[in-house]
């Protein structure tokens, strides 16, 4: 009996998934899972346990969260963070937009100024806060000198509880302005030039062109800038830590600094993890809210 060899079945059809392709995403996936997904779930798990650096103790349910919301310092840090986001995000969006509008030209001056305004973004937080501490030094700082020219005394930005967060916000705005400006510039440059020509033929004034043509054309980017900045500014840490150490009297202590203090200075990892989850939810909610609002107004 002769065996008829069956035709060899192709190992995969032209449209069936080829798992070899997964190799291309594997390196990224590995780091994504180990450095982002795993810590996220571990953090959630940790927040339901009493844990320190040496051991993860017993399951405590929502105990850490209850402690957290009874902690006045935590509640103050949440308030501080919201205040900081409120100070920085709209300002960054508006100044970024203004700069982009002013520098959206193909001139040498505009190019130089664009680079100049973006320059601060490449600095590390250490340098940025150093510069701004020099600005705010009482008596000898830049601010004190400028006030001195007019015979006035500069307000004590860093030590005045009413001004300290504003000082941190100023340093942050100076540091972070480059990204919104660049995002707005790229959006502006994608508006077709002939629309402006049509508007000129339609007798539109400069103001009318701005409000009726330019701004509606970049509203998606506006939403994007707001979301990015909310996510970024909710994570305030370096500037507050280096400029004020959270003081005076905790008025510049943001959530991340609270987490740092709790988890890595008081070694109460469970409580720190719970605070982290609260921050995660806050950022998620803020970004989602902004996304949904901008979606609702979105035109076809």
């Amino acid at each position: 009996m002769t065996a008829v060899q069956a035709p060899r079945k192709p190992s995969h059809g032209p449209h069936s998934p080829d798992w070899k392709n997964a190799l291309f995403v594997a390196p990224y996936l590995f780091f994504f899972v180990t450095l982002l997904v795993f810590p996220l779930f571990w953090g959630i798990w940790l927040s339901f346990h009493k844990a320190d650096t040496f051991s993860s103790g017993p399951f405590v349910g929502f105990g850490n969260y209850v402690r957290l919301f009874n902690d006045k310092v935590f509640l103050q840090s949440v308030g501080n963070t919201f205040y900081f986001v409120l100070l920085t995000v709209p300002t960054l969006a508006l100044i970024g937009l203004f700069l982009a509008l002013a520098l959206n030209a193909r001139t040498r001056t505009a190019t130089v100024l664009r680079s100049l305004f973006f320059f601060s973004s490449v600095l590390s937080v250490t340098i940025v806060t150093l510069i701004w501490r020099i600005v705010f030094i009482p008596q000898f700082g830049l601010l004190a000198t400028v006030y001195g020219w007019f015979g006035a005394t500069a307000p004590a930005f860093v030590s005045d509880p009413n001004l300290a967060m504003i000082a941190v916000a100023m340093a942050t705005i100076w540091w972070c302005l480059g990204l919104p400006m660049m995002l707005f510039l790229s959006a502006l440059q994608q508006i077709p030039g002939d629309i402006y020509e049509a508007a000129a033929l339609d007798n539109a004034s400069r103001w009318r062109t701005l409000t009726a043509i330019t701004l509606p054309s970049i509203k998606r980017t506006f939403a994007l800038v707001i979301i990015i900045q909310i996510v970024l500014q909710f994570q305030l840490f370096g500037q507050a830590w280096l400029m004020t150490r959270g003081g005076p009297n905790n008025v510049t202590k943001p959530i991340v600094l609270y987490i740092y203090d709790t988890a890595f200075r008081r070694w109460d990892l469970g409580l720190g993890a719970a605070a982290s989850e609260v921050l995660f939810v806050l950022i998620l909610l803020a970004a989602m809210a902004q996304y949904l609002i901008s979606r609702r107004k979105e035109d076809l």
Partner: peptide
């Protein structure tokens, strides 16, 4: 806008975020 002429562009140059009616009434 003050020359009393109207132009139809090759790419039409309609305002994408406005309705047809708004495109026509804008000028």
């Amino acid at each position: 806008g003050q020359r009393g002429v109207a132009m139809v562009f090759q790419s039409y140059a309609l305002y994408p975020h406005m309705t047809v009616r708004q495109n026509m009434t804008f000028g």
